[in-house]
Amino acid sequence: MVGRMSTSSENSKLNYILHLADNSLILGQRLGEWCGHGPVLEQDIALTNIALDLIGQARYFYQYAALTDNRGKSEDHYPYFRGEREFKNFLLLEQPNMDWAYTMARQFYYDSYCFVMYTEMLKSKDEQLVSIASKAIKEVSYHLKYSSEWVIRMGDGTEESHEKVQNAVNDLWEYCGEFFETTQYESEMIEQGIAVDASKLKEKWLRSVGEIFNEATLIMPEGKWFQTGGKEGVHTENLGYILTDLQYIQKTMPGLSW
C-alpha cells in the first residue's frame, strides 16, 4: 500500500501536538523520580500526584498525535520509540531535580507558563485541543497554587531556604526564554488559529511570576540570554538519560504490555 504523502500542514500540527505531549511527559517523568524520595510522605505523594496529572495530559496529547499522524502508530510509539532529537519538550523540563528548591522553581516557572498557555488554548479553533486544555487547566491551577506556595514558603522562610530558592530561580531562568519563541511548525499553526501564539504571553507570564517573587522576597533574574532548542529537538545532555530510563523496557522487549 502506498501511504498518503503528508502535507506540511499535517506535519506542523503533529509536531505541535508532540511538543505539548513531550512537555507533560518529560516533566512527569522527572517528578516521578521523587517517588519514595520526598522529604516527607505528604510531599512525596503531592509530587507524584502532579506527575500523574502530567502523564495523563501527555496521554491525551499522544492519542491525538496518533490520530493526526497518518502512519498508523499507537500512542505508545511516541514516548517509547522516538529518539532524543525527535522530542520537542522545553529544555527546562529535562533539567535534573537537584533539591526541593530546584524542583519547585522549575515547577513554578512551568506552571505559570502552562496556566497562561492553556487559558489561551481554550480559544483554539481545534476542538480536541480545547477539550484537552479545559481538563488540563483545572490540574494546572492546582499545580501552580502548590508550586507558588512553596516558592513563597522558601523565599520568605529561613535565610538558608531563601538562598536555595533564589539560586534555583537564577539558575533555571535561562531555560525560560524558550517558552516564548516561535518555531516554524508553530507559526503555521498559529496562522490557522490552532496553536497558541506564546510570543504574546511573555508579559502575562512575567507579571504573574513577578507577583509571586515579590511575595517571596525573591529578586527577579534579569538575564537576557537564553538557552533554546528544545522545541526543535536540540536538547541538553539530560534528556538522553531520561529516555534511557523511560524507554529501556520497550526497547528491550518491544510491545511488552501488562
Binding site: V40, E42, I45, A46, R153
Partner: peptide, 20 residues
C-alpha cells in the same frame, strides 16, 4: 492524620493524601 507546617499546607496535604 498527617504532618504539615501550617493549616494551608495541611489542607493541601490532605487533598493529596486522602482524596486521590
Amino acid at each position: 492524620s498527617l504532618h504539615a507546617a501550617d493549616a494551608q499546607m495541611a489542607i493541601e496535604n490532605s487533598r493529596d493524601v486522602y482524596t486521590r
